[in-house]
Amino acid sequence: MRSDSRLARMSHVLIHMGLRGGNETSEVIALMLNTNPVVVRRTMAGLRDHGYVRSEKGHGGGWSLTRDLSELTLLDVHRALGEPAVFALGPSVDHPDCPVESSVNAALTRALHDAEAVLLAELGHVTLADLARDVPQVSGRRPPA
């Protein structure tokens, strides 16, 4: 099963945007992510719908941040991406009447729920500005203090 890297990829893009301080076109972002501009527009739409970026059409247009990196957490980005599943593990539905399967599913579901709660709480404590501070220098600009 492929892992979902949208959280890492879009956080990467948003930090670049914050450090560069300007607009980025879907084409430039697509080059950054080695993908298609249509995929970028579709993904950025969720961030726009949550009020984290805006888009302007035409010459000189593109995507820009509407919030400072210090106001955006990894959890915010995760939610804007539609809250994708954080684990590939899951319960079995092969034999729904089997008490053994039910017992395994109950234990697994509890453990996954608890682990997800811890992970999401941690994502809520990490701002994109925190991550940007780890970047030595991007495009001639220093990371925010």
Rank of each mutant, 00 (worst) to 15 (best):
Q137A: 12
L89E: 08
L69Y: 00
A132C: 00
V77A: 05
A115F: 09
G61Q: 06
L65E: 05
H125Y: 08
G22C: 09
A107W: 07
P37M: 04
N23V: 15
G58T: 07
N36Y: 07
R41N: 15
G61S: 05
C98Q: 03
A117L: 09
L19A: 01
L69C: 02
L72V: 14
M17Y: 06
E101H: 10
H113V: 11
V104R: 14
M17A: 09
R41K: 12
R54D: 13
V40S: 04
L108E: 00
V93G: 15
L69W: 00
S64I: 12
A115W: 11
N36W: 07
W63E: 04
M17E: 04
S3Y: 15
E27S: 08
V126F: 06
H16F: 06
V135F: 00
A107N: 08
N34F: 13
G61H: 08
V77W: 00
S5K: 13
E101P: 04
E27H: 09
T73M: 01
V100P: 06
T43E: 10
V38N: 11
G62P: 04
S139T: 05
G61L: 05
L81A: 10
A80P: 09
V126G: 04
L69G: 00
M17C: 07
L108H: 02
L72P: 00
T109Y: 07
T109M: 08
T43M: 11
V40A: 02
P99E: 10
M17G: 04
G124S: 02
H125E: 15
P144W: 02
S5Q: 14
V126R: 07
S3G: 15
G140A: 03
E56M: 08
S3E: 14
A107M: 15
E116H: 05
H50Q: 14
L123D: 03
R67N: 11
S55G: 14
A132H: 00
R110E: 13
L123M: 09
A45L: 15
A121W: 07
D130N: 07
E24R: 14
R48K: 12
L128M: 04
L14T: 05
F87L: 04
D134M: 10
E122Y: 08
R48T: 10
S11E: 01
I15C: 01
D94L: 13
L69P: 00
D68I: 07
T127M: 00
A106Q: 13
W63H: 12
M10S: 11
H50N: 14
L33M: 05
A106K: 14
G124M: 01
S26V: 07
L31T: 13
T127L: 03
G82K: 09
T25C: 05
A132T: 06
P99N: 07
T25F: 06
V77S: 04
S102E: 15
V38Y: 03
N34Q: 12
R67Y: 05
F87V: 02
A121R: 11
V39D: 07
A117E: 09
R2C: 08
S26H: 12
E83M: 12
L112P: 06
P143K: 02
A145V: 12
